[in-house]
Every structure is written in C-alpha cells, then in structure tokens.
Design a protein around this nucleic acid. Structure first.
Lengths: 142, 142
DNA sequence: GTAAATTAGATTGTGCACAATTTAATTTTG
DNA sequence: CAAAATTAAATTGTGCACAATCTAATTTAC
C-alpha cells in the first residue's frame, strides 16, 4: 500500500477524532444545562448577539436549515427560545430568548472553566492549536 | 456577558467547524468511490491491516458498534466487504474485503493528492496542525 | 405591473454518532 | 462444574449534518 493512503499520514483523521473527543468532554458538563453541544452553540450566539434570524445563526455556526430547524424546535420545546415569523417578510423566522433562556447564561458561566479543567491540555498547546486552526479556517471557508 | 463565554474565545468551536469543513471537502472526491468519509476510514483500516473484528475497527477509528454495525451493513450491501461470525467465538464478527473492495484501493490512491489540492493549505501550516493535534490527541484519549 | 429570479425556511431522506440496553457466548471463581 | 462476571455485537432511540427539493414571499427586469 502506498504511504499516502495510510491513516497515520493524513491530517483529516486526527482532526475528526479530536473534534469528536472534545465534544465528548462537553457532554457531561452540558448535561447539567440540558443542552447538547450544537444547542449550546446556538444559545451562545443568542446570548452574545441577541435576537437573530435562522439564517444569521446558520452563517455564524456554519449550519443549514435542515440542521437548525429541528434543533431550534427542541430549544423551543424546552422553553429556552421563541420562534416568530416577521410581519414585514414572513419568510424570515426570528429567534429570541425566553426568560429561562436568558437565565441559563448564568448557569453556563462555569462551562468554559470546567472544559479547560477536564481537557487538561497545556495552555500553550491549546493556544497554538487555536492559532493554527483560526489561520486555516479563515483561508478555507471562502 | 463575560468574555470566557464568547464563541470567539473558545477552541472547540473552530475545531468543530474545521473538522466539518475538511470532511465537506472529501465529499465530492469520495462520491467517485461511492463512499462517505467514515466508510472511507473503515476501508482504509481494511486496506492497511486486512481482516479485522468489528471491535478492532472501532478501536482504531474511535467508533462504537452502534455506528459501525449499520455502516458495515451498507458496505456489505455495496459488496465491498464480507461480515462473518467466527466459529471459535460466535460473538465476534470479522470483516474482510471482497475482490471489489480490494480493487477499490487502486481507485482510492488519488484521494490524498486531490484533498491536498482542494484544501489549498500551506504545507507548513498543515504539518503544524498535524503535529499539534497528534500531540493533544495522544494526551487526551486515555 | 407582471413574469422571472432570488431569497428564506421547512421538509424529506440518508447517514453518522453515541448512550443505554439486550443477547449470547466465553471466562473466571468459588 | 455451575453461578457470576465479563466480553462482543446488535439493537434502540435521540440528535445532529447536510443534500435535495419544496413552498412562499420578495426583488428585479423588462
């Protein structure tokens, strides 16, 4: 077998594994908020930026409506968000936080620290990873 | 909002996005082999290591039986692999390549080069990403 | 001003991903 | 050796992820 088909020589596989591994670390922490990782991302967008269209959330998280629509319906069922069609342009659905959704931000404050603890990666390595990923992401997604 | 809850300050989100983005680049290339990315990973294990148990594949790819069983059944339907229970220990299912499955390795030779082309990332950046991810992966998955 | 193009979400269908449970076989222990 | 523990896959159920298609509303071009 030629070397370039070897699993160990490829970059995508370790990237794919690490991403799954890190999300797995979030699970027991986010269970306290009754959120999955993608749901947590949506909530962060809303906490950070307030009321948003579905497409705005999609752009920020690189997720399409086929993923977001059912996810947002689950957040609505948990009474964390409200989905409402705009009167000016009824194609547009705006997503806003409920009181519960807003309050959840306080509970979420501890999440990043808990993650850093459980990941247990050198701060330097983490920073290096962040830098190189951001560098590549900015080139690749256009 | 406290800074540590900001999306931009977290490492997991760019990691998760980059992994999805890279897998997305594989899709149009793997479509020629009629494989998804996880199916391609399984085929690479088999090309590289030959006949394997389900659990051995699972360990190498960090995937559990709930993921692998249906995936392997799809590969079996495509007549790329054979699933066979061991006679010595009938709990164990061994996965081997069919003639078609073996032949597909030739077609797959071009995949890594095509990926490097379409990713269009500096070789240095790619190497740096690979190094830091491998370093972190080896610490995190134990 | 109306037909064509564009835009925004929703829907549908396929395929992971994984936790939890089940089933069946093998090993270990008393 | 028989009961208990362990092991290996399969099954079930929930939740993404995304391509493709659909529906309806708005823009634009003529």
């Amino acid at each position: 077998m030629s070397d370039n088909l070897k699993l160990s020589n490829q970059v995508c596989f370790p990237l794919y594994t690490l991403a799954k591994e890190v999300i797995k670390k979030y699970r027991p922490i986010l269970i306290d908020l009754d959120l999955t990782y993608p749901q947590y991302l949506v909530m962060m967008v809303l906490w950070e930026e307030g009321i948003q269209n579905v497409s705005e959330i999609g752009n920020k998280l690189s997720l399409d409506s086929g993923t977001l629509t059912p996810l947002l319906k689950r957040l609505e069922q948990k009474e964390l968000i409200i989905r409402k069609r705009k009167t000016e342009d009824e194609r547009i659905v705006t997503i806003s936080l409920t009181e519960n959704g807003r309050k959840l931000e306080n509970t979420a404050q501890c999440v990043p620290n808990k993650i850093v603890e459980t990941l247990n990666i050198d701060t330097e390595d983490l920073q290096q990873l962040k830098n190189i990923i951001n560098k590549i992401n900015s080139k690749i997604t256009k």
